[in-house]
Simulated scan of single mutants.
Amino acid sequence: MHEATQMEIKALKQAAASHAASLVAAGMAVGLGHGSTAVAVVPALAERYRRGELAGTVFVPAAHFMAEALRRHGLPVGSLDDWPVLDLGIDGADEIDGNLDCVKGGGGALLYEKIVAQAARRFVLVADAGKLSPRLGTRHAVPVEVTPVALAPTTGFLNEIGGNPALRLRPDGDPMRTERGNAILDCAFGPLADPAALAAVLDARAGIAGHGLFIGLASLAIVAGPDGVRELARPAG
Rank of each mutant, 00 (worst) to 15 (best):
G216K: 13
K104I: 04
I90A: 09
L220P: 05
L151R: 08
I115F: 08
A117F: 04
G162T: 13
A63P: 02
F189N: 09
I96D: 06
Q14Y: 12
H140S: 12
P165Y: 03
L32E: 05
R170P: 09
A199Y: 08
P148F: 07
V144K: 01
A193C: 08
I184V: 09
E8M: 12
A26P: 10
A183W: 03
G216P: 07
A236Q: 15
D174K: 12
R234D: 01
D97Y: 03
G74Q: 13
A224C: 03
V201Y: 03
A16E: 06
E231V: 04
G181F: 01
L75F: 11
L75W: 14
A166N: 02
M1L: 02
A40I: 03
N182H: 13
A204G: 07
G212M: 06
A21W: 09
R170V: 11
P226K: 14
G130D: 14
L192E: 05
A152I: 13
A204E: 14
I215Q: 03
L32T: 01
A21H: 09
H64K: 14
V124L: 10
I90D: 10
G237C: 09
K114H: 12
A63Y: 04
A117N: 02
G105Y: 00
E8N: 06
L167H: 01
Y49M: 14
G210P: 01
T37I: 01
P226I: 04
A193D: 13
H19Y: 13
G105W: 05
D87T: 06
I9G: 10
T57N: 03
A152W: 10
I96C: 03
T138Y: 00
T147W: 12
G106P: 03
D101Y: 05
P76T: 01
D82K: 15
A188L: 14
V30Q: 00
D227K: 06
G52F: 09
V149Y: 00
A200D: 15
R168G: 13
L125M: 05
V42N: 02
D203I: 08
K131Y: 01
V58H: 00
A150I: 13
G162W: 09
N159D: 00
V229A: 02
E68H: 11
T154R: 04
E47I: 07
H211K: 09
P84L: 14
P148Y: 08
T138V: 04
L217Y: 02
V85W: 05
C187T: 08
G56K: 07
G173N: 06
A117K: 04
G137W: 00
D172H: 12
I208E: 07
F157G: 03
S219E: 12
N99F: 11
N164P: 01
S219C: 15
R48H: 11
R51A: 13
T154F: 03
D81S: 09
V103K: 05
R230I: 15
T178F: 02
A236G: 15
M66S: 11
M7Q: 15
S219F: 06
E95W: 08
L232E: 07
H140K: 06
I222H: 02
E113V: 14
A17K: 05
G89T: 03
P148I: 07
H140Y: 11
A62W: 07
R122F: 08
G31P: 08
I184P: 01
D172F: 10
L167S: 04
G210I: 03
T155N: 01
V146Y: 01
G105T: 06
F123W: 09
A62Y: 01
A63I: 02
L185M: 10
A109Y: 05
E113N: 07
R50D: 11
A17I: 04
